[in-house]
Amino acid sequence: MNIFRLTGDLSHLAAIIILLLKIWKSRSCAGISGKSQVLFALVFTTRYLDLLTSFISLYNTTMKVIYIGCSYATVYLIYMKLKATYDGNHDTFRVEFLIVPVGGLAFLVNHDFSPLEILWTFSIYLESVAILPQLFMISKTGEAETITTHYLFFLGLYRALYLINWIWRFYFEGFFDMIAIVAGVVQTILYCDFFYLYVTKVLKGKKLSLPA
């Protein structure tokens, strides 16, 4: 464990909690892409099946349980409890265009052709594109609530910090995982234009609105 990975995990946890609290307190999921949240629940489910097969540390297990619990709670709020506030007309990204290629790639490019490893690889590839429905929805509505931009900032920051963690681990431990690194670079690149808008607008107190 290193400071970049720990900060990354805490940034990820912050993002997940910010979103869940925003939806729960405002009793509304307006502007939130339910499709992206379903994809994240799928990412955690397929990646953390090793909760059943191996124990790494209390930290590892606790964080996995929290991530899975919060992501399912978020999906439940969006599609069940607060369904009336879900903006389905703007959440129209075709997720099958993500899941099918990612599923195929996981079979073709992986470290080991075993079920757990294929699912882990699928989860890594899926996570790198899971935010696309949310970014697409913001481009369609042309704006995002400020709290939603903070959620996206911490979510994007977490994988950027993981990239530094992988540089650190390569240098000090000789560890590197090409699949996670390539997917992590793609994932972070997808946030770049959002990061630009976040820094130039939201941090200056303006609302995030895209030229419609």
Binding site: R5, T53, N60, D112, W120
Partner: peptide, 10 residues
């Protein structure tokens, strides 16, 4: 490889 999994990261 740790236990059944090779991945120690979240």
């Amino acid at each position: 490889v740790i236990g059944q999994t090779r991945h120690d990261e979240l």
